[in-house]
Design a protein around this nucleic acid. Sequence first.
RNA 1: GGCCCCAUGGUCAAGCGGUUAAGACACCGCCCUUUCACGGCGGUAACGCGGGUUCGAGUCCCGCUGGGGUCACCA
Length: 490
Amino acid sequence: MNKVRTRFAPSPTGYLHIGGLRTALYAYLLAKQASGDFILRIEDTDQDRYVEGATEFIYRTLRLCGLDYDEGPDVGGDYGPYIQSERRSIYREYIDKLINLGEAYPCFCTKERLDELRAKAAESKTAYVYDRHCRHLSKEEAAEKMASGIPYVVRQKMPTTGQTTFDDAVYGQITVDNSVLEDGILLKSDGLPTYNFANVVDDHLMNITHVIRGSEYLSSTPKYNLLYQAFGWEIPTYVHVSQIMRSPGKKLSKRDGDASFSDFYNKGYLKEAILNYIALLGWSPGTDEEFFTLEELAERFSISGISKSDAIFDPAKLRWMNGEYIRKLSFAEFHEMAIPYYKQAIQREDVNLEVLSRMLHTRTEVLSDIPEQLDFVDTLPDYNVDLYVHKKMKSSVDTSREYLPQAWGVLGEIEPKDWNEEVIHEKLLGLANSLSVKNGQVLWPVRVALSGKPVSPGGAIELATLLGKEETLARIDFGMEKLSVAPASI
RNA sequence: GGCCCCAUGGUCAAGCGGUUAAGACACCGCCCUUUCACGGCGGUAACGCGGGUUCGAGUCCCGCUGGGGUCACCA
């Protein structure tokens, strides 16, 4: 039994799409559960698409996610180089072999000729297929042209009859008529291979046992099988995975704004939550469990749990799952992660950040939600008196007008050194009790006066504790003033 | 359009010939409660359609419909 070796082979386009990350994750899991190797290979044969810094970005992101690769451009390995543009001579060698085998041929057709063909096809409303013009050149003719320096590409010589069948570990057996296969380009005129050639050569040379990739490659897989057969190479296990869609019919894409891992990560999503969520998008453990660490995933992952149909990315569920991960954080962990967001939201120096964290820990699903929840801390937002009206709390403008000053009174009695949650709680509830009114009738107006918002990440007592005596009394003062000029009753 | 693939609630999904068709998110209601959130309890909601095969089909086969992919000197 060969050691399992999988690879993730992204193009350096500058960002890591959620779907791509999932493919990487599956490849990683498949390798790790079999104690195999996970390899990173950079597919940069399209020099036009090269983006500066993109490879480093891929290294960083994979490491950040914990998808450590055993071999790759920056870690080395026995099968390098791991960047395709550095493997030029290797492809040349194998393309020559293929030509000698009679399985490929040089093609000297110009761009113009091809465009003409395409135009003609469009005109007659038939599908464009390369007419195999150069396939019939004699060896001598071809050699002569090659020698004379005419630019050329190398095309795969497809069988024109028969069928090609391949097995996919998730989709099963797939058969296509060879007649639908085109004499595709294997080597471009710039001397670099197309994906269609490079992936086969590299996967073989790197001893890849399981090829995990998106289902968009399903229809070109027969061509790859033909290549493996031409060389007499062992065909790897194919594991094609469905796509992740943004909404029915819409592929998740960079254009839509938030499809990349870093977008979520930078917004305050935890990497563990993102990985956990995408692992479940297209794979099921077959049980009810849905929280897994990377290690647990490696243990539990199975090809049989991979689903064939496309999955729609549900931001709401990711959000929920992220919230679950945040709640599972220890208080100290949460506090540390939240601090940068506090700094962003609050200028005042006198607020106790730990009090904030106690309030926010269960109220935060995504870290970047924090600033908005705290927008009342520095300055009291302007608000309308009808905020004092709350049916369930039995609070109205009238009751608020009556109880707010009393609350001000009992709070004012507290010595600054005793200003803490316990004492405030005692004072405020004591007031409601002595007045024989519902707690809410006292607490609601206080909460409103302190926050100026319909909802706040804490009640009257917590907000008073957070804001301090001076600010609390000042805000209540302001509220009383507002109420005094309000129309009779609402 | 040709070829290939897919098809269980709004979403992710379990199911692999016999089930009251799980579970989760979202949504709704109730409870807890100083608002909200957390937490607890409950609810609405699905096998695309039509033929077969079978004693019996969400599960197997065929057709249809719908969706996706692919037909580049991109991967």
